[in-house]
């Protein structure tokens, strides 16, 4: 690993890599939620975290403060982030609808019981 990871923290600006590191933590937390939670809503929250981690990367690459003038993605970064946010909101609504329907039919939000499609 390079020296800049922790060396001059507090006196030097952070870079894209630092944002990506935070994004990675959020992403992995989200994945873990999706994998480990039995509650369908927990899984939904995991998805939100994953999207959020990805968003952080878009922002980092688009920011002029992290990569310098003209180096980054420019406006693509924030715009992609915006689309992700908007779609995440839509996705949450749809996923919640699925969860509620599942709950209506099965009296449960335990996704381990949503196994009708397995052979």
């Amino acid at each position: 690993m390079h020296h800049f990871m922790l060396a001059n923290l507090l006196t030097e600006p952070v870079g894209v890599a630092h944002y990506m590191a935070v994004g990675a933590v959020l992403f992995v937390c989200g994945v873990l939620c999706m994998a480990l939670k039995r509650n369908a809503l927990g899984v939904l929250m995991g998805i939100e975290l994953v999207l959020n981690g990805a968003n952080l990367n878009f922002i980092a690459f688009g920011s002029r403060f992290l990569r310098g003038e003209g180096q980054g993605l420019g406006l693509d970064g924030p715009l992609m982030a915006l689309f992700v946010i908007v779609l995440a909101a839509a996705e949450a609504a749809v996923a919640l609808a699925i969860v509620l329907n599942f709950y209506n039919n099965y009296d449960s939000v335990d996704i381990d019981r949503a196994d009708q499609l397995q052979g």
Binding site: M1, H2, M5, G15, V16, A17, H18, A21, R67
Partner: peptide, 9 residues
């Protein structure tokens, strides 16, 4: 993330 030089601060 940290091994890529372009992503340094």
């Amino acid at each position: 993330a940290f091994e890529t030089p372009q992503w340094q601060p």
